[in-house]
Computed example of a mutant assay.
Amino acid sequence: MLLAIIIGCEIGFWALLAAGLATRYLLRWRRVSTVLLVCLPLLDVVLLAATVVELRGGATAGFSHGLAAAYLGYSVAFGHGWVRWADERFAHRFAGGPPPKAKPRYAPARTRYEWREFGKATIAWAIGCGALLAMVAMVGDAERTRALVGWTMRLTFVWAVWSLWPISHTLWPARPKDGEAADGGGAAATSGRRGARW
C-alpha cells in the first residue's frame, strides 16, 4: 500500500504541476494556478503521514518505508527546482518568455552549478536520513527497523558518489577550446532570474 502511495504522490506532483502551469499560462487563472502549486508540498505531508501511520500500526519496516524517506528528502530539496524548470518552459512556450538556458558547460560557472546541485543533494540526504532515524526512534524495535538502518547506508553511498562530480569539476574544470565561446554563466549564474512566480 505504501509503495502505491509513493507512486501516487509522484504522479500527483507532475499532474498538479501541469495543471497549475496550464491554468496560469493557458487559461490565465492566476489564483487557481497559485492554489494548485501551493498544494504540491501537501503530497509530502500525505506520504509522511501514511508512513507514520503504517509503522505505528505495528508494521515491520521494509523497502517501501525507506523509499518513502528518500523520496521525501529529494522532493523537498529538488522540488522547487523542478517547478522552476517546468515554469520556464511553459512561460517560453505559451507566454512569450525567454528561452530556458541550459546548464553551463565550462568553469567557473559549471563548477558553481555542480556544487549548488550537490548542496541540494546534501539537503536531501540530511532530510532522508533524519526521517529514517526518526522512524527508528519512533518504533523503538531494532528488529522491525533493520531495513531503515540499511537505507541510511544507501542514501549515504549515493551522497558520497554524487560528491565526486563537483570535486572532479573543481580539480579538472572544463575549459572552452580555442575559438569556442565561453559560457555566459548559463543557468547557474542566472538562478535569480524569473522562475516559478507563485
Rank of each mutant, 00 (worst) to 15 (best):
R30G: 13
W85Q: 09
I5N: 08
H65F: 05
L16S: 07
G97N: 06
A18S: 12
T34V: 15
R175M: 08
W29S: 05
I123V: 14
W82G: 11
L16G: 07
G57Y: 06
G119P: 01
C9V: 11
P104A: 13
A68K: 01
C39R: 04
A95E: 05
R31E: 02
V76Q: 04
G96Y: 03
F157A: 15
K103L: 12
P166V: 11
V35C: 04
T170L: 11
V83N: 01
E54R: 15
L17D: 01
R154S: 12
L2F: 11
R175C: 04
Y25R: 04
V35H: 00
D183A: 08
W14Q: 12
W172D: 06
R28A: 11
G186K: 07
A187V: 14
G62P: 12
R194A: 15
V38L: 13
E10S: 08
E180G: 01
A107T: 08
I5D: 06
T23L: 14
I127M: 06
T51V: 13
T51N: 14
A124S: 06
A50C: 14
R105P: 01
L36S: 04
K120W: 09
A142K: 06
D141S: 09
L47P: 02
L47A: 09
G130S: 06
F94V: 11
V35M: 10
G186L: 07
V83G: 02
G8P: 03
A188H: 13
G73A: 07
Y74N: 02
M135H: 08
Y113W: 15
F157Y: 11
R89Q: 08
Y113C: 11
A59Q: 07
H92D: 06
D87F: 12
A142R: 09
T152L: 15
A22T: 15
S33H: 05
Y25E: 06
G130K: 02
P173G: 10
R146A: 12
A147Q: 02
A91V: 12
D87S: 15
T60E: 05
G192A: 12
R144A: 01
G128Q: 01
A4D: 11
A91I: 09
T34F: 13
F13R: 07
A187T: 11
L36K: 02
Y71F: 10
R154F: 14
L42D: 03
F13K: 08
I123R: 03
A131P: 02
S33N: 04
L2C: 13
A126H: 00
M135W: 07
I5S: 10
W29C: 10
R193Y: 15
L40D: 03
V149S: 05
G73I: 01
R146F: 13
L164F: 12
A4L: 15
P104N: 05
D178T: 00
P166H: 10
P104D: 03
G192N: 07
E180N: 00
T156D: 05
C39L: 14
A86S: 05
K101G: 06
E88S: 12
A69S: 07
